[in-house]
Write a protein that binds this DNA or RNA. Structure first.
Lengths: 134, 134
DNA sequence: TGCTGTGGTTACGGAAAGGGTACCGCCATG
DNA sequence: CATGGCGGTACCCTTTCCGTAACCACAGCA
């Protein structure tokens, strides 16, 4: 395999692990930007067990502000991770649920969560050692 | 399972998927901050096939600035994902390699990359539909 | 007559991330 | 002598993220 920079139709393409990565339109970075926000992945995990209403989410995650809750839900809805259903009750209730896409994302997300829990101590240790030397 | 907010020793703890999440010291968010940067995960992937030197990485990822390359490598080294070895040649050459921790992270990372590649079209489609309605 | 809950939107501002440019010492090459 | 590669550092700027606070309509309840 040639691990060098390639040029395909004028695009900047990087070969990584044998897979061409289009830097100008990178799917991985696109997804990472979506779920890399402060609350996005936690929101998906919170909805893993079933739909929840706006105020239920607010009580479930007390640290999030109303503004960020709205924005996070909008972003995830926009990218297709979850659906928003309004029930015309009085007062109107809004239910958020994972879509098929959102549920499929739980697989890599949970693996990532497990890795984080297992290796967090090692990371903190490495960080402390690095800071001690510097 | 009780999906409610709990209070353990004054810490803010959220139950999610049956796992208690300490919001003030969350391992997942800590790891996410590390590898959620613009270049961090690409850097780890670039080193998956073997060690590379500073200038090799610069040529491999042409879009990164020298400043960001240095900063990304420092961050990943600090958290223990990669090692930095200086060879006293003339001029001195510096080699970056994944540590055991870094290699173990390739497992969830590659799953995430695969998911992104598979579902990027669905996300773009959902986004376009959302924007069309709004 | 206020107060609470539901589901938000908007304005404002600080902090952090990201990036451009210039510059450094050292050495080899032309 | 000048240029280029190596592996960075310092300074400054722009953009994005995120939080606080205020405000909205509507209904129920005291």
């Amino acid at each position: 395999m040639n691990r060098a920079t390639g040029a395909v139709k004028g695009k900047r393409v990087v070969m990584v692990c044998g897979v061409p990565m289009d830097m100008a339109n990178c799917p991985v970075r696109d997804v990472m930007d979506n779920i890399g926000g402060k609350w996005n992945s936690l929101m998906i995990l919170s909805l893993a067990d079933g739909p929840l209403r706006f105020s239920e989410l607010r009580r479930l995650i007390p640290d999030i502000s109303q503004r960020m809750l709205t924005q996070t839900l909008r972003d995830l809805q926009r990218d297709g991770y979850l659906s928003r259903t309004v029930y015309p009750t009085q007062p109107p209730s809004v239910e958020y649920a994972l879509t098929e896409l959102g549920r499929s994302f739980l697989v890599p997300l949970k693996l990532f969560v497990d890795w984080s829990l297992q290796n967090h101590d090692a990371i903190r240790k490495a960080r402390a050692e690095y800071d001690a030397v510097a």
